[in-house]
Simulated assay, not measured.
Amino acid sequence: MTKLISAIPCVSLLGCCFLLGNSAFAADDRFANVEIVSQQLSPNTYMFTGSGGNIGVSAGQDGIIIIDNQFAPLAGKISAALNTIQPGLPRYVVNTHYHGDHTGGNNSFGPSSTIFAHSNVLKRLASNDKYTQAALPSITYEQGVSIHFNGDILHLIHLGAGHTDGDSVVLWDDKSVVHMGDLFFKDKWPYVDLEAGGSVKGYRDSVANIINRIGSDTKVIPGHGELATKNDLIRFKHILDESINWMEGQLITAKSLETLKQNGLPQNLQGWGWHFISDERWIETLYQDLSSKKP
């Protein structure tokens, strides 16, 4: 594995140097021990895990395509992991949405790759000065596009507002693999980014749509978590249904958000909280989104 980039040198006052140096080393330390682990799913396809969103990979006679690319400091480690499969830089990059734990490597991979994404991803990344011009998607779409690559056809599908307003799911034409992006957090409450156009019910409906498109043997790459199956995705959809139904029932009785948080989730909805989306934060997300759409 390649080493992480070193801390930015400080050329200003000693106090400034100490603060900036500590900040840079802290960033370094966060990713210093991250390993990019490769899991082969078929002769041409792989799933990479590390820190951030899971990466889908197709490698073969046409070159390499990667779906998402985690945090910026991990680009070197991702490149090294790719080179253990097949030499060369990715020819294509797909951004399943705009969040930095999925697009941070765009600055590194963009200059030698063509980046695909939904049009709203381009809008959001273009307004962020951390991304260079080469790091921005150059091929965008509204509903989807297909890439014919390495003997496969990869369908990039936008299903409407869900995790954000610019999500893409990548489905292999033979249904061998699907990359869900952050429309699937395995065994965890999902993050629905309401400020970025996300929708709780839209999220649930997108999951249901993909369940109807895949087969029982489809390997499901979640945005976060271990490799999954169709049954895992069905279980995830059911818990989304149950939590939506629960919140809608609570809204009928006009309970306040504070009361709902104090009471907590019912027993049948427990066990899905994690450090980023706790039960309390999931209650807040459900309340904020569903109460704003009451008839």
Rank of each mutant, 00 (worst) to 15 (best):
V169E: 05
I210D: 07
S292Q: 10
D174Q: 04
F25M: 15
K230I: 06
A7E: 11
N231E: 15
I64R: 06
S58M: 10
I147F: 10
D241M: 12
V177M: 03
G52P: 07
D129Y: 12
G223Q: 09
A26S: 13
G15W: 08
L233F: 08
T49M: 11
K230G: 02
S168F: 00
V220T: 04
G52M: 01
E226L: 12
T164E: 01
H102A: 04
I157F: 04
S112W: 10
S292W: 11
Q86G: 09
T114G: 00
W274T: 07
A27M: 09
L136C: 08
L89R: 05
T218E: 09
L136K: 03
T2M: 12
E226C: 04
G160R: 03
S216C: 11
I214C: 09
S113T: 07
L14F: 06
F25C: 12
P87G: 04
D182F: 06
L269K: 04
L265N: 09
G100K: 08
Q143L: 13
W189G: 06
S58W: 15
S291I: 13
D182E: 03
L286Y: 07
G52S: 00
I214W: 03
I8Y: 13
H275P: 13
S113V: 02
L257P: 01
T96V: 09
G144H: 05
L260D: 10
H148G: 05
H163P: 00
L171A: 07
D217V: 11
H179A: 10
V192R: 10
F71C: 08
G264Y: 09
D279M: 13
T103A: 01
A81N: 01
L74V: 08
N54W: 10
S243P: 07
A126P: 03
Y203L: 08
D152W: 12
S79W: 00
I66M: 05
S127G: 03
D232M: 06
L14V: 15
H158E: 12
N245F: 01
E142S: 12
